[in-house]
Simulated assay, not measured.
Amino acid sequence: MELPFFPALFSTVKSLVVKQPFFPTLEDWLVNHPKILEFSWINGQTPASSQRFLTLTVFSYISFTFILSQVSRPFLARPVLKSISAVHNIFLLTLSFIMALGCLVSIFSQVPNFNTLVCFPKRTSPSGPLFFWAYIFYLSKIVEFMDTLLIILGNSMKRLSFLHVYHHFMVVIMCYLCLDSVQSSFSMVLVTNCIVHVVMYTYYLMCTLGMRPKWKKMVTDFQLLQFWASFLIMAMLVFYHFTGSGCSGILSWCFNAVFIVSLLFLFSDFHAKSYSPKVKGN
């Protein structure tokens, strides 16, 4: 059983994209490269794939964040901090763009239909281009811990909120579980998240360079839109799971559902406090 509209839309878009003259070149770079095509996630063998690594990474992030926020911190000259921040933002917005593009090209190259995109068959192996980009995405979330360090070194402690810390360490756990359990539809979430991060890190870069874009609210709006899109994707996964032979990674789906609900609540609260008419009036 299939959902109406979405399968036809996917087939139409896929047909249009693969016929473009640039597609074979992108496919060679982002899908058919041996390192990408032959990638396989093996727990305990692939770098950063063990549960011990995940536990130590998350624990270290939380511990160092707490300690550094409580003690006297080393002072970085503002020009040095701005330079580091600029390089960090350029790296992450570029990486986010490449991950979104790589995953999209992999989807159009490797995924036969919309049903498979949303619902990986049970016993799907975590190998190939889609899982390579999911792996890079997972590693990028560890790199994003640098966001927190830059906030602390810049003495911008108002930005070091519970939402910031919670979001950064929980998303690493989510990415790990999605890879390890072969989470269905994760590639769709990856694309939407990376597109939002291109916008977000572009905004951060402009602020670092001394500009003050007027679309700060749009960044939070995009993040909220991403969470609603994730709800739609998860709902479609459940539909295919219970109307077909089942989908891979349904248990990690439960973790993701709780996590995204919590993020939606926290970001909505942040949005209300930051952009309500009462706040603007003050």
Rank of each mutant, 00 (worst) to 15 (best):
Y166L: 06
I233H: 08
T243A: 02
S156A: 14
G244R: 11
M170F: 15
M188F: 14
T243L: 05
K141W: 07
V191H: 02
F186P: 10
F227E: 04
F255T: 03
E144Q: 10
V171K: 08
F242V: 12
M170K: 10
Y135A: 01
V199Y: 12
F242S: 06
V199G: 03
S245K: 14
N256F: 07
A257D: 02
L163W: 09
L139G: 04
S262C: 04
T220H: 09
C247L: 02
S248L: 00
D180M: 05
F186A: 15
D180Q: 09
F186M: 15
M200R: 06
K141T: 01
I152H: 11
D147K: 06
Q183K: 14
G249Y: 04
M234N: 07
E144N: 08
V219A: 04
K141Y: 07
A235I: 13
N256L: 08
K158S: 14
F145K: 03
W215D: 08
V165D: 02
L179P: 05
M218N: 14
P129N: 00
D221H: 13
V182E: 01
H197S: 09
Q183Y: 15
G244P: 11
H241T: 09
F227N: 06
V196A: 08
Y203S: 09
M218C: 13
W228I: 14
L177H: 12
S230D: 09
W253S: 00
S161K: 11
C194R: 11
S184Y: 05
K141C: 03
L232R: 00
T192Y: 10
D180F: 03
Y135T: 00
S252W: 00
M174R: 13
L251C: 04
L251T: 06
R159P: 10
H167N: 04
Q183G: 15
G249C: 04
C207T: 15
L209P: 15
F186R: 12
M234L: 10
S185H: 14
L205I: 07
S181H: 11
S262P: 07
C194P: 10
G210S: 10
S185A: 15
L139P: 10
S140W: 08
V182M: 06
L224Q: 04
M218G: 11
Y166I: 05
L209D: 07
M146S: 15
L153F: 14
V219S: 06
W228T: 13
S181K: 13
V182N: 03
H241V: 03
W253Y: 08
S161P: 15
T192N: 06
A257M: 08
Y176T: 04
P129E: 00
S230A: 12
I173D: 09
H241D: 08
I151K: 04
M174K: 10
L160C: 07
W215T: 09
A235K: 11
T202R: 01
I142G: 10
N193R: 05
M188P: 12
C247K: 03
F259R: 02
L160E: 00
V258S: 06
C207I: 13
Y135S: 01
M200L: 10
I151S: 00
S245C: 08
A229V: 14
F145G: 05
I151G: 01
F132H: 00
Y204P: 13
F255R: 05
S140T: 04
I250K: 02
F227P: 12
T243W: 06
W215M: 09
I233Y: 10
